[in-house]
């Protein structure tokens, strides 16, 4: 297990397409639900414990070697918004490209062959973590962190929020992020025996509803 490999995978500059996605922040900013650091923090906290937990569990389960196709179906069932399913698959395909170039692996090749238009991003990330010699805990932390760092970075651009404030939000969420990653790994371990129903299904109705509205905007800065 390499801590440095985790830094490479978790780096916001890892070229896997994340920069074009706001994690729902663009819609929340437009609706006036994110107006500054405090509401950004509540937004991120809600996303972390719902979509973040689910994604982290999917990634951890993939990193442990659970069947990626079954995980992908489980991800679909946990993503009612077609716009979010499309975004997750696009990001999965982009991550797949970067991961195969970075950590060539037969498992990644096989998943790419099975899902030429992309599997859900957290599933790909879990396999990428495996290919990089990382564990379930690393994959869960990486995905849990992405679930909040994406909206925070986007909000800096959308609201011209002070970047130091946005980074402080992420730092304040760190203890909760560790707990979510732990929960995700526990759920992922249960999945190996009990199947994908053991994965968390925490949902955030507003993220799903506003993703649909956002996808229909004629003019927007972010893809999701």
């Amino acid at each position: 297990m390499s801590r440095a490999a985790l830094l490479v995978l978790a780096d916001g500059r890892f070229p896997a397409g994340g920069h074009a996605h706001s994690g729902g922040a663009e819609a929340a900013v437009r609706a006036g639900r994110i107006t500054g650091a405090a509401s950004l923090e509540e937004f991120c906290r809600g996303r972390l414990h719902t979509a973040g937990l689910v994604s982290a569990s999917l990634a951890a389960a993939a990193a442990l070697g659970a069947d990626p196709a079954a995980l992908d179906t489980a991800a679909d069932a946990r993503t009612p918004s077609p716009a979010l399913r499309v975004a997750a698959r696009r990001l999965g395909r982009q991550l797949m490209r970067a991961a195969r170039a970075t950590w060539p692996s037969g498992e990644l090749d096989a998943l790419a062959g099975e899902f030429p238009k992309g599997a859900h991003q957290p599933v790909v990330l879990g396999l990428a973590a495996r290919a990089a010699g990382l564990g379930a805990d690393d994959a869960a932390h990486c995905v849990a962190y992405e679930s909040v760092s994406g909206p925070a970075t986007a909000t800096v651009r959308l609201l011209s929020l002070d970047p130091f404030d946005a980074t402080a939000v992420l730092a304040r969420l760190a203890p909760e992020l560790d707990r979510v990653a732990d929960q995700a790994v526990l759920a992922a371990r249960r999945t190996l025996d009990d199947g994908v129903d053991a994965l968390p299904a925490a949902s955030a109705p507003l993220l799903e509803i506003s993703a649909e509205a956002h996808a229909a905007w004629a003019v927007r800065l972010f893809a999701s």
Partner: peptide, 16 residues
């Protein structure tokens, strides 16, 4: 879609 950073999409992260 470029997330407000067209130069990122053509230079730093070209995946999309």
């Amino acid at each position: 879609e470029t997330g407000a950073c067209p130069h990122t999409a053509i230079r730093d992260d070209i995946s999309a």
